[in-house]
């Protein structure tokens, strides 16, 4: 398994380089212009000069190479400088966003806390609710609990966040006035009171996001449990006199986890990637909002960097999922 992991990690480097090139070319090919949000009152000659000032006049391969150097060579130096007080990166040009004219990574670092707080919490809450629901629904298939779970999760999944978000705002922020409708990103948690405030402002976006996660994961959990509950080994385990709890929660659950692990691993990078619509509705302004504003403003360095970080996480978590398959089911071998 170790050699497999090392081989995959080494293989990941060319994969990621290829992905970065694919993303770069895709962004180049896509229609769009960083000057789209500049008002029409600014004449085209001025816009052309502004484009040149952004470095758009240079040929494609030069810009790609520059980005590679900035991202893989200069940014790590900045990181080292930050931790050890060295000056490797002094005076070197970092990946600069076209919208803000500031280093992309600084903004990303600024956005990570609120993204992890909201999207990360929602994901964990979602998983924690979904797995028990899935297990129990399958164990008591077609019981009232199962029927209710199915109903709620399917409705929850088929109603998009662009509707649930405003709906919750109208109910809980406008009419009841319990929770704020705008997330305060400058809020600092330092005592119990401020934690309570943080908790209150997180509830609505977390609810919207957790609903989607719960619905999805509980469906896969239930289906997979159902497949395994009728297998011969379950009968054997019961015949051995194992308690029902051990049979279900150890034997069946372990064998049912493969699709669930896949789904969870596929969703993990999204914690970093943020949730675009929910972030915009509640003005959480995390990575998701950063990405969508960068896309609309055609801020290519920002989009390129964000999607690439995203790609790294996707490759990483899919690798973790593959390793976990082997742990869950030792018969699965890759070499």
């Amino acid at each position: 398994m170790l050699t497999f992991t090392i081989r995959r990690l080494v293989l990941a480097v060319p994969t990621l380089l290829f992905i970065s090139l694919a993303i770069f070319l895709l962004l180049e090919l896509a229609p769009g212009d960083p000057m789209a949000q500049v008002p029409l009152t600014v004449p085209p000659e001025v816009k052309e000069k502004m484009r040149l000032a952004l470095g758009l006049g240079e040929p494609l391969h030069v810009r790609y190479w520059k980005w590679i150097v900035q991202f893989f060579w200069i940014e790590p130096q900045v990181l080292i400088d930050h931790y050890f007080g060295t000056t490797f990166a002094e005076g070197k040009l970092r990946v600069i966003s076209w919208q803000t004219r500031s280093p992309v990574m600084d903004i990303v670092v600024q956005r990570i806390p609120q993204t992890i707080w909201v999207v990360g919490t929602a994901y964990i809450v979602g998983i924690l609710i979904a797995i028990p629901i899935g297990i129990y629904s399958a164990y008591k298939q077609y019981s009232m609990f199962d029927q209710a779970g199915t109903f709620v999760s399917m409705i929850g999944f088929s109603i998009p966040p662009f509707f649930t978000g405003p709906l919750l705002i109208v109910i809980f922020a406008v009419h009841l006035g319990w929770f704020p409708s705008v997330y305060d990103t400058t809020h600092v948690v330092n005592d119990w009171e401020s934690f309570k405030l943080q908790f209150r402002q997180m509830i609505l976006p977390v609810m919207v996001l957790a609903l989607q996660t719960t619905a999805q994961i509980s469906r896969y959990m239930r289906a997979s449990m159902l497949d395994n509950l009728n297998q011969d080994y379950v009968r054997t385990a019961r015949a051995k006199g194992l308690s029902e709890f051990v049979v279900v929660m150890v034997h069946v659950l372990r064998n049912s986890m493969i699709p669930v692990i896949t789904v969870i691993a596929l969703g993990m990078p999204a914690i970093f990637g943020g949730a675009i619509i929910t972030e915009v509705v509640f003005k959480v302004n995390g990575i998701g909002q950063l990405l969508i504003t960068a896309l609309f403003a055609n801020d290519l360095p920002m989009v390129q960097t964000l999607t690439f970080i995203f790609a790294v996480l996707i490759v990483l978590f899919n690798l973790i999922a593959d390793i976990l398959y082997g742990v869950l089911d030792p018969r699965i071998r890759y070499d």
Partner: peptide, 10 residues
């Protein structure tokens, strides 16, 4: 992995 990484909007 590649398809998962491609940004959808562009």
């Amino acid at each position: 992995d590649l398809f998962l990484s491609l940004p959808i909007l562009p």
